[in-house]
Amino acid sequence: MLTTHRISADFYDDSFKLIAIHSNLEDYAITYAINSGCGLYLKRMERDLCLEANAKFSVFDWDDELNDLYWTLIANKCVVEEVIPSDGLFGNNTSERMDHLIKERKEVDYFLKVDAADDDLIEEQVRRINKIARVMTAYPIDTQTLKSKRNLIF
């Protein structure tokens, strides 16, 4: 007999603040710009965030022990390659599609997640991020309105 274990929704700690960032910079370049402009020390995590077999989202994090904050920069977009089997002359074809971490916010390129932060700190960081060249805009997001916010809890 199989046993199914479920984790209660009460178990998830979703007390984090979220900043949406629109930028066409690569993940390493936006991380460098945020580190330089905001005084953070984000580093690439050893493993990417995998939701599906091929969908891997880059993640950068920093544990600010001095201020008791945990910062995470997460890419909202990733390119997924799919093999399309074919019996034709050219064999199998590959197709690329864009996948999103937060599907209801497809226009956002990156999310800066801050655990245990107050609203004043978030507003200050939003002002600093908006001053970075090649960042179109950055703004705070109310996490309670997101349907797929569990993708941000890892």
Rank of each mutant, 00 (worst) to 15 (best):
49 L>Q: 04
90 F>H: 07
114 V>E: 00
144 Q>E: 15
79 V>A: 15
129 I>W: 03
49 L>I: 06
88 G>H: 10
21 I>D: 12
111 F>E: 01
25 L>W: 04
81 E>I: 05
2 L>M: 01
128 R>F: 14
74 I>R: 01
97 R>I: 15
120 D>F: 04
149 K>Y: 08
12 Y>S: 13
99 D>Q: 14
109 D>K: 02
29 A>Y: 04
100 H>Q: 02
45 M>E: 14
32 Y>L: 02
119 D>G: 14
72 T>M: 04
24 N>E: 00
92 N>E: 13
51 L>D: 07
130 N>S: 14
36 S>C: 08
91 G>D: 07
137 T>I: 11
153 I>T: 09
132 I>A: 05
116 A>N: 12
36 S>E: 12
102 I>N: 04
60 F>R: 12
28 Y>L: 07
49 L>E: 06
22 H>Q: 15
97 R>N: 15
64 D>V: 06
122 I>E: 00
8 S>C: 11
74 I>K: 07
15 S>I: 05
34 I>N: 09
7 I>S: 07
68 D>G: 05
43 K>G: 07
57 F>C: 10
17 K>S: 14
109 D>F: 09
132 I>W: 09
19 I>P: 05
20 A>I: 15
37 G>L: 01
133 A>Q: 10
77 K>I: 11
71 W>D: 01
118 D>W: 05
31 T>F: 00
38 C>F: 11
137 T>M: 12
56 K>A: 14
23 S>A: 11
150 R>M: 08
60 F>N: 13
74 I>D: 00
136 M>L: 06
50 C>Q: 14
1 M>T: 15
77 K>M: 08
23 S>H: 08
151 N>K: 05
107 E>L: 09
44 R>L: 11
100 H>I: 03
144 Q>K: 07
60 F>H: 11
132 I>S: 09
6 R>P: 03
9 A>N: 12
67 N>I: 02
70 Y>L: 12
34 I>H: 00
81 E>Q: 15
123 E>A: 13
35 N>Y: 04
122 I>S: 00
151 N>E: 03
130 N>T: 04
65 E>S: 06
142 D>E: 07
138 A>N: 06
12 Y>C: 12
95 S>K: 07
7 I>G: 05
144 Q>Y: 10
95 S>L: 15
26 E>V: 03
15 S>P: 00
134 R>V: 10
83 V>T: 12
22 H>A: 07
61 D>G: 06
69 L>Y: 01
53 A>R: 00
137 T>F: 03
64 D>E: 13
131 K>A: 15
125 Q>I: 14
29 A>K: 13
130 N>H: 06
93 N>G: 10
17 K>H: 15
89 L>R: 08
73 L>C: 12
134 R>I: 11
77 K>V: 14
150 R>W: 03
127 R>Y: 13
110 Y>F: 12
81 E>V: 11
135 V>C: 08
116 A>H: 08
14 D>I: 11
154 F>G: 07
119 D>C: 00
2 L>V: 06
38 C>M: 08
121 L>P: 05
140 P>R: 13
59 V>F: 01
3 T>M: 02
103 K>C: 10
41 Y>S: 02
144 Q>W: 06
43 K>R: 14
47 R>D: 09
138 A>R: 01
130 N>Y: 09
100 H>E: 02
143 T>K: 00
40 L>Q: 03
152 L>D: 02
5 H>C: 01
18 L>V: 03
61 D>E: 14
48 D>I: 04
82 E>L: 06
55 A>R: 00
148 S>Q: 04
